[in-house]
Structures are given as C-alpha cells and as structure tokens.
C-alpha cells in the first residue's frame, strides 16, 4: 500500500499551546506505511478541500500516528473541533519524506513554529545523533521540547522575543554548529525566510540539507498539479509538486 483513505478513531487529543492541537490516531495500515516527512490529508466537515498536516509521530507497534497542527483558518478550526473517540477522515500517508541514513553520526533538525512537528520523527530515528533546534515567536508558543528530549536528541530553543531560550532566530545557533563542522545532514521545516537562510548556510558549508515545504493543495496525490513549486532538476527548471515530489526536497533543488 502506498496510501489509502478512511475514517480512523482519534485516541487522544491535547491542546499543547494556544490554538495548537495534538491528535493521536489509531490507523495501523497508515502507520505501517508512513515515514518521517510524509503528511496526512484531512477532510474538514463542510469544506471542499482537505487540509494537509505533517506527521509528528509514527508508532508502528501501536499502529498509531500523531499529528500536531495549528488553527490557521476555518478548515483547521473545524478539524480542531474533533474530539477523542471521534472519527477523522484521512487520505494518507502522502508525499515524499526525508532521506534517512543510519550511518550518519550527527544531524541537525531545525523547526520553526508549526514547522517543528515533522522534526520529531527524525529525532526518534536519530536519537542522540540529533541536535534539534526549535524556534518560536515567544514562550507561550513553544511546543514539543520534552518530546525531543525523550528521544535523546540535544535540544536548542530560540524565541523571537527572548521569553524562552536563546533570544533570536534558529539560524544563530545553527551558524555556530555549522562552523564547528561534522554535520552529515540538516533537515528543516518552517517559514520560507528561515528555510532560505538555512539552505544558504548549508550551501556555504557544503552540508546536505533537506527541507519540507507547504503549499495550498487540492488532491494531495499528484493528480491535479495544484501545489506547484519551482525547482531545478538536471539543470532544467521544473515545476515540482509539493504533494507528490515533496513535501521534502533537497534544498539545492528549490528555486527560492
């Protein structure tokens, strides 16, 4: 199975920050097929388009997925109304995820805001080999730090206003880490200016970098060509699609 669509039971729901929710969903066949960096496409009752949400946790033994999402508009607000015990309609798992390599000795995971959740399955895979840098607007927006610590990853927290962790953007601690060397790969998800900055630092230091992008999406499986992203492949400009070619791209492929 590559992907399927169905109704699955929400086995846990938590509000983990202002307007940010964590759902655990019992979906054994989806969990079995899912890999870090992929996403689920969720139907919002009363809306035409599904909402793509990145996968924040994969428990193949328990047959569950975890998603963490922020209320961004009416569709995500509708999804947030679902409760423990309710059915959630998902088309999943979708997209091309992160490239994992167990010979890597040191990787850096960089999440900005609601771009942080897809970094957690990478931390679960790399454990102590990972440094997880997370950036948020302020202390009240901070999420998932204890989850990262439980994976064994080293954590570095930044906030824009200095109300928690380092006062500044994720690129500051990352620049220092990059200078120290020894990084095999960088994985990042977050706002475009952050990703652009990280990609530039990686290029300068010759570090392999993968980023996860988002775009307004319709089908979610590569049929409608709605979620175009300008990329370069084989020296030619190519409109890739975030849902099928991505959401994870090698940073050097993306035309910013």
């Amino acid at each position: 199975m590559k992907y399927t669509q169905g109704q699955y039971i929400i086995t846990d729901k938590k509000a983990i920050a202002c307007e940010i929710y964590s759902f655990t969903i019992a979906c054994p066949e989806v969990a079995a097929a899912a890999s870090p960096g992929q996403f689920v496409h969720i139907r919002a009752k009363g809306y035409t388009l599904r909402r793509p949400i990145s996968i924040c946790g994969i428990d193949k033994d328990k047959g569950t997925l975890r998603i963490v999402f922020e209320i961004r508009g009416e569709g995500t607000a509708e999804i947030a109304k679902l409760n423990k015990g309710d059915l959630i309609d998902m088309l999943a798992p979708l997209g091309h995820g992160f490239t994992l390599n167990d010979t890597y000795n040191k990787v850096v995971l960089i999440g900005g805001g609601i771009g942080t959740p897809p970094m957690l399955p990478l931390a679960a895979f790399y454990g102590k080999k990972a440094v997880a840098i997370s950036g948020f607007r302020n202390a009240s927006a901070v999420i998932l730090q204890n989850d990262f610590i439980r994976t064994g990853a080293e954590t570095i927290l930044c906030t824009d206003d200095g109300s928690a962790g380092i006062h500044g953007f994720v690129t500051q601690p990352f620049t220092e880490l990059a200078k120290q060397g020894g990084i095999d790969a960088v994985y990042a998800c977050g706002p475009m200016p952050m990703l652009k900055g990280i990609a530039a630092i990686c290029k300068e230091n010759g570090i392999f970098c993968q980023i996860s992008l988002e775009e307004r999406m319709a089908c979610g499986i590569g049929a409608c060509l709605g979620c175009a992203c300008r990329t370069v492949r084989n020296d030619e400009e190519y409109f890739a699609h975030v849902c099928k070619d991505g959401p994870v791209f090698n940073a050097e492929e993306v035309l910013w």
């Binding site: 388009l49 775009e215 307004r216 319709a218 060509l225 709605g226 979620c227 175009a228 190519y238």
Partner: peptide, 8 residues
C-alpha cells in the same frame, strides 16, 4: 509549466 503558486 503552468502558473506560479498558489494555484488553489
């Protein structure tokens, strides 16, 4: 190649 995003 089509139009630039957003397309939807």
């Amino acid at each position: 190649t089509g139009n630039l995003a957003p397309r939807i």
